[in-house]
Design a protein around this nucleic acid. Structure first.
Lengths: 124, 124
DNA sequence: CCGTTAGGCAACCTAGGGGTTGCATTCAGA
DNA sequence: TCTGAATGCAACCCCTAGGTTGCCTAACGG
């Protein structure tokens, strides 16, 4: 039950924040919140599709570890996999990351607006 | 040892990814990767400084839980706290989030570039 | 001076994350 | 058809993230 208490202490006309777009980005941020996974994202982003073995090489962790990270990224919708022969190629999927970017932009803009209206209040 | 194997399978002139700016954003993303914390960020972002009690009210979790989340956000540099009387006011701190935004922009741009050069290769 | 309200501290609990190892499987190629 | 590379699967381990409860402290407001 995610009801919002419309607290009377809040400034008037404050609409309930996070009506969804930000909330939905939480899994994406969680997936990005790990250096190993950030590395994978950057690799796939710059180098196109890669196999697990390729992604593992040059890493500290095991192939199985890499696989798990890839699954996490896939759950978050940040990567897709395609089987080619005995290999499994992983590729970056930009849509969810775009969404997350927009969420951050939205938050930042909200902040700017708040600052602006505060400034206006002070100046008046 | 985060050495990069300059894999001969990679396309030429591929510079080591994540030379730092993205890597440093991992804690920020990790901090944002939780709905409760996203809610806090949005609240502080829109409503200015708030006390712990204010932030707790209308939430599912305990005051202590909120406190812990605030500490996580503070560790990530996303919020600041100021003690006023017996209250402790928390406010949003935009700099780290800006940095994270830029990181995402960078990744997205890298992806666009990769697509572009691929397209160019195909067309040639 | 006293009740009440806002927080801090510490202990505790539980589930899941990150990582590993070992073995089974599948497919490419000589 | 035999060997080896590329994965999949499952079990296991350890530690931390979330979350709670109980109690203690500090400061308002009378």
């Amino acid at each position: 039950m995610s009801r919002w208490k419309t607290s009377s202490a809040m400034s008037p006309r404050t609409k309930p924040p996070l009506q969804g777009s930000l909330q939905r980005s939480a899994p994406v941020f969680a997936a990005l919140g790990d250096e190993a996974r950030l590395r994978l994202v950057a690799l796939l982003c710059a180098g196109g599709a890669m196999s697990i073995a390729q992604l593992t090489e040059g890493s500290q962790i095991t192939r199985q570890g890499v696989t798990k990270h890839l699954l996490v990224l896939a759950d978050a919708g940040l990567v897709n996999d395609v089987k080619i022969g005995r290999e499994r190629m992983w590729e970056f999927a930009p849509s969810r990351l775009e969404e997350a970017r927009r969420s951050l932009d939205h938050v930042a803009r909200q902040w700017d607006d708040a600052l602006l209206s505060l400034k206006r209040m002070v100046e008046t």
